[in-house]
């Protein structure tokens, strides 16, 4: 526990100082914010998926519920950012509890399936309602928070960093508490866990609600950050899957795995999207620009990041089922 506190504090110090070194390059800032956001989402998912072993395939629902609730409030009643974020958390927790209440009585594949169904219900409902702007989405403008300049990326960097630190803190606390041990027991064997006095239903719901609340805050911050949301940016199944992949690739069930996964995957996606990899292959002469392969790679690699995710996932599951960190983790460190 003490060790985790020290590492988290070090990480906080380095990350807090980072913008000072990088200057205000908006491109880099945007990537860093995305990394922090995916790290928070993956860490949040890790609490219910990695610790309790309950794979949610619908975390976009909580992210989106936060984003939408906050945006709607800010553009209508405008009760201020903190209240709008809190309202988002409330909505997400209600959705999480409804889901958990229905499916956590069941074992096996049901939670995975039901979590997708709930996420789709949320997405389609948002798409069909008027208050959410339907397919048009919501433009979140004229938002202010004290004297902060919300046109700058800096406040959002620190907001996401703060969220990530809180998430890591919560994860570390849970991991070493009775709740954490109970979640691990549930992951390992539900019958055994119940025979040792663990209320499976209660603890799975606790894990899901904590996780949903964090994802919701990430959604709220994101909505204010990009000032425009629609269902394809904050509620797609693709996002739910990316959150899982980030955790798996970094190391499921570990404190730092989700962070590592976010750094790797966001950077990789960015490198592909900006065609850095395609150009690198051509520039280093590994493939010639004139050749068919070269032309194909250069025009297509930019769209291939999800394909690459897919390949990495398959290789990870077949090769190292515990993820990169899980693979190297010392066994038995109680």
């Amino acid at each position: 526990m003490k060790q985790s506190v020290v590492v988290i504090a070090l990480f906080a110090a380095v990350m807090a100082a980072l913008p000072g070194f990088l200057g205000d390059n908006p491109y880099i800032a945007d990537i860093l914010i995305t990394i922090l956001m995916m790290a928070s989402l993956a860490s949040a998912w890790n609490i219910v998926g990695g610790y309790a072993g309950q794979f949610s395939f619908g975390h976009a629902a909580y992210f989106g519920a936060g984003a939408y609730t906050t945006s709607i409030l800010l553009t209508t009643l405008n009760p201020g950012i903190p209240v709008s974020i809190a309202a988002g958390v409330l909505v997400s927790c209600v959705i999480a509890l409804l889901t958990g209440t229905i499916v956590f009585r069941l074992r096996g594949h049901y939670f995975a399936l039901a979590s997708i169904a709930v996420a789709e219900i949320v997405r389609l409902t948002v798409l069909n309602l008027d208050i959410t702007g339907g397919a048009q989405g919501i433009l979140v403008t004229k938002v202010s928070f004290g004297s902060l300049d919300l046109n700058s990326k800096v406040p959002f960097y620190y907001a996401m960093l703060f969220l990530l630190l809180v998430t890591l803190g919560i994860s570390a606390l849970i991991y070493r508490s009775r709740t954490g041990y109970y979640l691990l027991a549930i992951r390992e064997d539900q019958d055994a866990a119940a025979s040792l006095g663990i209320n499976l239903y209660l603890f799975k719901n606790i894990a899901l609600v904590i996780s949903a609340a964090i994802a919701s805050v990430a959604g709220s911050i994101y909505a204010v950050y990009i000032s425009f949301i629609d269902t394809s940016t904050v509620l797609p199944l693709r996002l739910s899957i990316e959150i899982i992949l980030t955790t798996i690739i970094g190391g499921i069930g570990t404190l730092w795995g989700p962070v590592l996964g976010a750094v790797l995957l966001v950077s990789l996606a960015e490198a592909l999207r900006s065609n850095m990899i395609g150009e690198y292959l051509v520039n280093t002469g590994m493939v010639s620009e004139g050749s068919a392969t070269g032309a194909f790679l250069k025009s297509n690699l930019a769209h291939a990041h999800v394909l690459v995710y897919g390949i990495i996932t398959v290789l990870c599951i077949l090769g190292l089922p515990k993820g990169i960190l899980g693979f190297f983790r010392r066994k038995g460190e109680a």
Binding site: G310, V314, C316
Partner: peptide, 11 residues
């Protein structure tokens, strides 16, 4: 198993 099929589907 689910993730493997997810990954395969993405591919």
């Amino acid at each position: 198993q689910i993730l493997l099929t997810v990954g395969f589907g993405l591919i």
